[in-house]
Design a protein around this nucleic acid. Sequence first.
DNA 1: TTCGTTCCGATGCAATCGCATCGAAAAAAC
DNA 2: GTTTTTTCGATGCGATTGCATCGGAACGAA
Lengths: 199, 199
Amino acid sequence: MPKQVDHEERRRRIAEAVCALIDAQGLEGVSLRDVATRAEVSMGAVQRCFRTKEEMLLFALGHVGERVTERARGRLVGSPAQSAASTVGHVVGELALLREEHRAEARIWLSFLAAAAVNPALAAGLRNSYADLEGLFTRLLAEASGAPDPEREARTLLALADGLTGHVLIGHRTTEEAEELLHAHLAGLWGPTGAAAGR
Amino acid sequence: MPKQVDHEERRRRIAEAVCALIDAQGLEGVSLRDVATRAEVSMGAVQRCFRTKEEMLLFALGHVGERVTERARGRLVGSPAQSAASTVGHVVGELALLREEHRAEARIWLSFLAAAAVNPALAAGLRNSYADLEGLFTRLLAEASGAPDPEREARTLLALADGLTGHVLIGHRTTEEAEELLHAHLAGLWGPTGAAAGR
DNA sequence: TTCGTTCCGATGCAATCGCATCGAAAAAAC
DNA sequence: GTTTTTTCGATGCGATTGCATCGGAACGAA
């Protein structure tokens, strides 16, 4: 009893459309009709995939969350031989979503963050991703730096990256400035005499 | 030819209503009708005060921006005799919008931030407030710490505060955790041996 | 008073929203 | 081949949106 089309694949496709729309016009600019058009499916298809709009957004949130953490994790295991310090720099750079190519994801992330402030379900979804990232950072910092409290450093780093991302998005900070600030902060982590991460 | 009612006063009143609505349901939940109802004025009044909805939102953004920077500045000059370190701690604590009483402002701020990512006019408004805050922080840090680059520290601090605020809003971080991280970061500023700011 | 101008609140309107429903096409069962 | 069941795309519906328009109240000048 094979279904006519792969449902999961379609959900993925719709999630991508949602992301594209959020990137272009923000969360408020996302209507079911536009999503259907962008995903090149009928409105009925969208409604069958997701019972309600909120359910759709929630899935899309999980989708980008997965992509982001996946990429950070990939960066991590992808360069096991490098110095831990350099690895931290790379992972954070990836995570901060500063690069132009990830600007879209940053906008999407920020939209969800703002929406989550008044929507418990979205907040729960976001917390999952944040917990993952924080754990990843903590483990990374634990083996990379001699800091006595890697968890504290990871939490600080995560918040700093998030804040910088927002500042870059509204043009209050350039990508270069943000990266420099991030690297300077990291350099301060392994003692005032330590060498900064590459770049 | 005195106007029947004070226009500026009314604009203020409407801005407050906008803020209250954003706090409760986010930016998407703000309609002209709801604003009028909340501000206890007619819809026509809202329309005469602001030609368009965007103009209204822009004014509201400026309104909260003024409130926030004003409060931070007030904190600054209000305690000139204290140690600079303690002052920094207080100002940042105020700015981070962590306290429950300022949670509403934090939500509003975050909403505008997300909207600004896809709305140049709002972004410009936000940049003004950020520039003010950054200048304030920079001057404060310059005379408070012996750090060689107070501007860098100010920028980092601002981003960290913003990031933490977001994390608190979605429940990924408690207010206490965030304050502790903020203070720990500050403590690291004036040399690893320096005393932390008061609490 | 009477006229003319200005300001006010209320209502109208076209567009769009999320969601429910429907007939037809396809698949499965027999 | 026929019938039954499921899945599809499309359309309908009530509600809500931002904005435009309208009749009347409030004021100053004559």
